[in-house]
Design a binder for these strands. Structure first.
Lengths: 304, 304
DNA sequence: ATTGTCGATACCCGAAAGGTATTGAAGGCC
DNA sequence: GGCCTTCAATACCTTTCGGGTATCGACAAT
């Protein structure tokens, strides 16, 4: 069976006239006549009963017309659906994210993606970074938001955002009037530190910074969340180091200083399996980049 | 959309291997590769993700595979159904018949047709000859069993059976010992005649025969059915003229004689609209001819 | 390192689809 | 009733496209 011939035949039946049908198909009349004849020969059935100059559709022709229309519609529908699935306008996308994103980058990204691709089923899973990586590699996740560094040859990584680390002191602190400081000036100071289990990456990064500055922080308080750390500092319990997100909190009693050593910023990245050229992932990563830019712009506008 | 490409694509997915798929399709591998590429280009979607030497079917490819299989099955089914309808193996056939057939030719024809074409919906309508003709012409009947003559340019007529007319006399009649007679010997004889309203054609035919033999029959009795006429003659009520079917009755007291004038036999014919080349009608007329021959053979065997 | 396997590419050929010009037949118009 | 129009079919040509053979390039197994 050839769909072209079915399309031609349907046009002839619909128009009731070879000339008009040919015009509507954008071809000349003779080839149309020939295609219909060929179709009849192949089926071995008279579809149009030619009765001097005019023709009438036979019973078999009518049956074929019905079936052909359904087939053509089905084919169009199939093409459309496959195109949409291929281009990532539809389908199912499983996104993993580290807990640190749950209240920051994830919401704007998801919101933007949902409005851009309402027909995509988006499944979100909050997981730890190590599980995110293995899930990506095994294919149970399509894309993930996590903190670098991560070493996997099979994954593609794009950094979305880099937050410089800042020093936090109470406004009553001796450094409160300055705009920057050296990290080693925190040696011996009462230090508010991130929980090793709740925020392992921040804990490790800050501990590492202190080590590089040749001191071990005098920890007086642990906290489970970044804004809790900021709160403790504002309350005068001690000093701390935090990613620049803290400037959003605008807490009274809190002073924020640049760190002269300029430690490597805290990055947030997006990862997916290399070779996953599926439109869904392509679209998601694009949207994520857009949403991140927009979110950063909004942040800047807010703090200004 | 091109069904050929869908068929090729399904083969590749099914076999999981271009070479084997090509073999199963009866083509070489290179054109198959090209057709798949062309399909992907047309859809703008990666259906098979080529990963060094091997490939895996993408989500879009899987969706297309499902849809394509349904489309191909649908197309095959449509072709089959149209072929069957066109060849008259299926469909609906409306057959009209004159009352005189109801108990003679019609049953064997219908029985034979039903067993040969069990999927054809057969609609039977008993009508008068004039209504049969107009119904055929208007298209509300596909084919009819009726008595000639009938004059219609648009109808095709085939005579199925010709029954010679015979003379009937009681076994006590002066002619009973003879094997033939001249119709005018019935002049003045008490005559059993067919009802003008119940059997108009037989009435007309016999009256005409008498007129041609230059006498007007002395009618003493009318009858509504052929076998009633035979019964009346057997009972000694009078003489009669009847089609040769009467020999089937084998009535005691009834003698059957050839008519020397050899009047035109009583024919039964089959008619359909010229140009109705539909397989249904073709098949029905063929079956009708076959059934008639078989029926006649059976008749001869019975009377012998 | 070598060979075999698999899909892709290059190039050629024949079939088939589309176009133009024309025919033949039927229907409409005066 | 003759003439013109209309419509599908036919004849013939051109171009496109599907299929075939030979070969490549890359990976895998030995």
């Amino acid at each position: 069976m050839d769909l072209r011939q079915l399309r031609y035949f349907c046009a002839v039946v619909r128009e009731g006239h070879f000339g008009r049908a040919a015009a509507s198909l954008g071809i000349a009349q003779p080839p149309l006549s020939r295609q219909i004849q060929s179709l009849e020969r192949r089926l071995g059935v008279e579809l149009l009963h030619r009765t001097q100059k005019k023709f009438e559709v036979t019973q078999a022709g009518l049956l074929l017309y019905e079936r052909a229309r359904r087939l053509l519609d089905g084919a169009d529908q199939a093409v459309d659906d496959v195109r949409r699935l291929g281009s990532g306008e539809t389908g199912r996308l499983t996104v993993g994210f580290a807990p640190s994103n749950a209240f920051t980058l994830l919401p704007p990204i998801v919101a933007r993606f949902r409005s851009a691709y309402p027909d995509v089923e988006l499944e979100l899973r909050q997981l730890t970074t190590s599980i995110l990586v293995t899930s990506l590699e095994s294919g149970s996740l399509d894309v993930a938001l996590l903190r670098p560094p991560l070493s996997s040859r099979s994954l593609q990584i794009v950094t979305l955002i880099r937050e410089p680390f800042l020093a936090l002191v109470p406004s009553t602190h001796r450094l409160a009037a300055r705009s920057d400081m050296q990290l080693r000036q925190f040696a011996g100071e009462p230090f508010v530190m991130y929980s090793r289990v709740g925020l392992p990456l921040l804990h490790a990064r800050v501990m590492d910074m202190c080590r590089r500055a040749h001191f071990s922080p005098h920890i007086v308080q642990y906290a489970e969340q970044i804004h809790t750390v900021a709160g403790f500092v504002a309350a005068g319990i001690g000093v701390a180091v935090a990613p620049s997100t803290v400037t959003r909190f605008n807490m009274p009693g809190l002073r924020v200083l640049q760190i002269a050593e300029n430690p490597a910023p805290l990055a947030m990245a997006m990862a997916w399996r290399t070779g996953t050229a599926t439109g869904l992932v392509r679209n998601f990563t694009r949207i994520a980049r857009e949403a991140t830019s927009a979110w950063q712009a909004a942040q800047r506008a807010e703090s200004a």
